[in-house]
Each structure stands twice: as structure tokens, then as C-alpha cells.
Amino acid sequence: MKGFWVLLRRELAMAWGRGGGPIVAVAFYACVATLLPLAAGASPARLAAVAPGSAWLALALASLLSLERLFERDYEDGALDQLALGPVPLEIVSATKCLAQWISTGLPLALFTPLAATALGADIKLAPLTLACAVLGGLGFAFVGGIGAALSLGSRRGGVLIAVIVLPLFAPPVIFGGGAIEALATGLNWTPGFGLLGAYSLAAMALGPFAMAAACRNALS
């Protein structure tokens, strides 16, 4: 347990430290949200139709891009060797890193999501559910994205490779979260989508660390 806290504090300090990871991720999100009306047309009717879905998709992309170097820095400078020889197994190390990623970057992005959706013209009534989906889905994004980040260790390509690995895995949470928000917007029952999103995130938290640890061990070998 002590090892967990020591690592979590280090990961959070590194995420919030110089370089401002969360700020860059939110800025990326803001850029995508700004480009959307420019690309799709700014007429309120059209924007309102796509706003919740686009905000949700932009969240997935921002989460993905911000965790690209989740393991890579530690791998490059040899710190991953030490993490592997610590008091807890690599499965817990991976889970801790993803959790820190979610706290430091996922939560700020989640706070920004309803803001962006509303600015794009989504009904303000949708904001609470959008926030809840973003908080919950962000966990899933972090733990599934971490698998891509760990698998691409030692590869010649970085970001684009991770995106190609991870985005197909993002299909279910994107569908469930988008579906829940859309269901509320059209007056249907939103709970199934929200529940499925939660189930997906929990499953990702339970199984993802095993894949990440296996990938890290492979990269270190």
C-alpha cells in the first residue's frame, strides 16, 4: 500500500509538473471544439445535432493523445526497470499510472466536456449527464489507452501507432457514452448506456493492467 501512494504521488507530480500535461490536453480539446463549427458549418440547428457526439469524440481523442507517453519516458530513462523491482507487481504499477493519468488529465478534460458541448449548442439539460459520462468514460479511456501506450514501447512510431491500436478498442465506450447522451436528448431512457459505459470502464480497470504489465515486461526483456 505504501508503494502505491509513493508511486501515485510521483505520477501526479510529474503530470502536474513542468510541461502542464492537463493544460495542454484541455487546450487540444478546445482547438478541436473550435475547428468543429468551422468544418461542419456554424448554423445552430446543425451544430446542436452533432454537438454532444462531437464533444464526446473529442474527449476520446484528447484522452488518447495525452497518455501517449504514459510509459515511454520511464522506459527510455530506465526508471521502468526500477518500477519493475519495486514493492508491488507491474500490474499495480500500471494501474496506478493510469489512475494518476485519470486524476491529472481525465478529470480536467471531463470538467471541460459539458462546457464544450454546451458551447457547441447542446442543450444545457444534457450537461450533468455529459459530465458524468466523461468522468466515468475517462477511466475506461485511460485504462484502455494505457494498453496501447505500453504495447508500443520500443517501437519506431509513437502517437499514430497508439491511435491505430487503441481507437478500435474505444468503439464500445464511445458508443455507450454517446448513446446515453443521445438517449437523454431524445427523451429516451439513458440509464442502459450509462450502465454499460460504467461496466466497460470497470472491466477495463480490472483487465487492462494485466495487458499493460505483460507489455511492459516484454519491452524490458
Partner: peptide, 21 residues
């Protein structure tokens, strides 16, 4: 893509294998 991006073939096979699972 993952298989092709890692130079060490044994590592590439295992990383891609994890992805396949």
C-alpha cells in the same frame, strides 16, 4: 502496424500477440 513497428522480432511477436488477445 504494431508488429511492423518494433524492430526486435521476438518482442514484436509478443507485443502483437498481447494485442491480438
Amino acid at each position: 502496424a504494431l508488429q511492423a513497428a518494433i524492430d526486435d522480432e521476438a518482442k514484436a511477436a509478443r507485443a502483437a500477440g498481447i494485442l491480438a488477445l
